[in-house]
Nucleic acid binder design. Sequence first.
DNA 1: AACTAGTACAACCGCACGCAT
DNA 2: TATGCGTGCGGTTGTACTAGT
Length: 284
Amino acid sequence: MGRQPCCDKVGLKRGPWTIEEDHKLINFILNNGIHCWRMVPKLAGLLRCGKSCRLRWINYLRPDLKRGGFTDTEEDQIIQLHSRLGNRWSKIAAHFPGRTDNEIKNHWNTRIKKKMKLMGLDPVTHTPIEQIQKQEVSDNRKQRSQSRPSFSTGSEENVEMIMKSSDSSGCTLQVVSEEQGNKVELNKVTWDDLTYDLPNKNEIICSDLDLGSRTNQEKNASTGSFSGSSFSLEDSSHLSMSESSYLGENSLLEWVDSISMESILEWDGFDPLMDQDVFCFGNR
DNA sequence: AACTAGTACAACCGCACGCAT
DNA sequence: TATGCGTGCGGTTGTACTAGT
């Protein structure tokens, strides 16, 4: 059927946001909340598409954003989570309140990837690069040998791992030899073990936990409460303005600070269009 | 000082999903 | 069921900034 564009793009501004636009957007959202992003630019007096407004708010203007560099601990945590979740940045970001998926994704692409390569680890599989190269050689050999008729490749590599149970700390695996039908139950292994010690762990985890396809519950959970990339209006009342350590421009920061917290807290009491008193400079 | 290469990150784009009709 | 809409997500691009020469 083909999706309609989120906006006609005609006469809309693109590129970097100005302080004035930021002020307009923040003022509108803090006073009215968000019911329909498509309507936000119109009501806020912005020549932007709703999508752009949403992105700007989520990634830059949200008052609860934690700015600044990532700590070593955070980086380690990102690596751990990435090994389990892959490039599902919103899920990863959910573990870091105040961080956005975009921020984590950027940090991953610019720094952590390189850091891992320097450590000799493949950023995609999280396994030692040397091991991957060996595996590739082994696979090539396998392929070549399989193309030959009646040639056994040996049983060591023909095993299947089945996840028997799992929780937040780790899982129990069953290893089944295809050729001999042997079943060996491993003691519980932690996710870290899976990350660094076992080959092909991505396939194991993804297939058995269905991490490759998001469930409705996951989606709802990610949008239902404040959890990193997904911002809940309800939970904004718990946020501390002191956490917004950086907003790009001091004037903007000061301006946000100057806004009465009461107006921020009343997300639920939002009356969408009753108050269309869009921000004007000098009004506050 | 001028230029270049590398880095960091904001912003955009296209697609998929859930929901309503 | 098919279609349209709004939103969220992940990949990619653009650009400002910094370091090195």
